[in-house]
Nucleic acid binder design. Structure first.
Length: 317
DNA sequence: GGCCAGGTTCGCT
DNA sequence: AGCGAACATGGC
């Protein structure tokens, strides 16, 4: 097996300031650096982009500052025509949310003594997004009820088993499997990859509906939050938690809030309820003060905790 | 070894 | 409508 000839191209992205690439890339990779299917090491983020079936590796690094941000993107792939370059730029801009202006959010945090220190210490942090609705949906289902660590292991296994791959500089990158492939794998194939029977049914079912054209999830980008939730929860295996999760991490909505999320309930309990876990209803009621920027508010809190900067959070007894 | 982890559905009262 | 069981795996 010989590797195909790999070409290179590069371009620049100028995000809307303030923009902190390091915080954003760290969040995308769960602060683990090497993260199974995407990497963030020595200031360089790398992942594979699936552009209508053509795999391209993108390497992204910051060459600017938070107030004057500039991202340098280097692509490597078998073909790099104009269409691929345009689409790759669009995807990177989306994943890193470089066109999002956080000024309205910061106007809110300026008036909020709880969030203000967090917003200042994490100034320029954007909430990174997944590249496709299908990937977000399957990832959400994989993450149901089990720890994030286990979910990532299962996801990596799925990608290595059923995803296309490209090797650049000795590193193999796996793309997320296409719906047709997971539909063909079927419930049994997914079970073989350590998923429960129930989850295998959910994933295979959605993959089949997509592959057959019965549903079109990419159209969700143009719908309202409520329409998204209604559409997604109509699918077997997708509840309110999963739908909210997609709003936050795939559809780039500013006001997602998965109030049923166990970690979120615990975290809000820690920072705002004297260490006592909030119920879903309590969390939802508390969150209203942050609307319409609940995605950002909660991601800043999670970011502070995951990056080990709890000192930025309000201290409670 | 047992318990839990960033839920959802299904089948009971 | 509301409640409990089942679910598969990895970490502690």
């Amino acid at each position: 097996m010989t590797e195909p000839i790999i070409h290179c191209a590069s371009f620049t992205i100028e995000p809307v300031p303030p923009y902190d690439f390091h915080l954003t890339a760290d969040y995308a990779t769960h602060f683990t650096g090497r993260y199974l299917w995407e990497f963030y090491e020595d200031g360089m983020y790398r992942c594979v982009l699936d552009i209508d079936g053509t795999l391209v590796v993108a390497a992204v690094r910051s060459e600017g500052t938070v107030n004057s941000p500039r991202l340098e993107v280097e692509l490597s792939g078998p073909t790099l025509g104009e269409t691929i370059l345009i689409e790759a730029r669009r995807k990177i801009e989306w994943i890193f949310q470089t066109n999002v202006d956080l000024a309205p959010f910061y106007r809110m945090t300026d008036a909020d003594p709880f969030l203000k220190p967090l917003a200042e210490s994490h100034r320029g942090f954007h909430v990174p997004q997944g590249p496709s609705v299908f990937e977000g949906l399957v990832s959400a289902i994989l993450g149901q009820q089990i720890s994030g660590q286990v979910a990532r292991t299962l996801r990596a296994l799925l990608m290595e088993s059923y995803g296309e791959s490209i090797t650049v500089d000795g590193v193999t990158y796996y793309a997320f499997p296409h719906p047709e492939v997971l539909a063909a794998a079927g419930v049994e194939g997914l079970r073989d990859k350590k998923n429960s029977g129930r989850k295998s049914e959910y994933i295979a079912g959605i993959a089949e509906k997509l592959a057959s054209g019965e549903i079109d999830l990419e159209g969700l980008y143009d719908k309202t939050d409520d329409e998204v939730i209604e559409t997604l929860t109509a699918l077997r295996g997708v509840g309110i938690w999963s739908a909210h999760w997609l709003l936050v991490r795939t559809l780039g909505r500013p006001d997602g809030f998965p109030h049923g999320d166990l970690a979120l309930q615990k975290t809000l309990g820690d920072v705002a309820n004297g260490g006592v876990r909030m119920t879903g209803e309590e969390a939802l009621e508390y969150s209203l003060r942050w609307s319409p920027f609940r995605t950002y508010a909660t991601s800043y809190i999670f970011g502070a905790i995951r990056s080990g900067r709890q000192s930025d959070l309000p201290q409670q007894d």
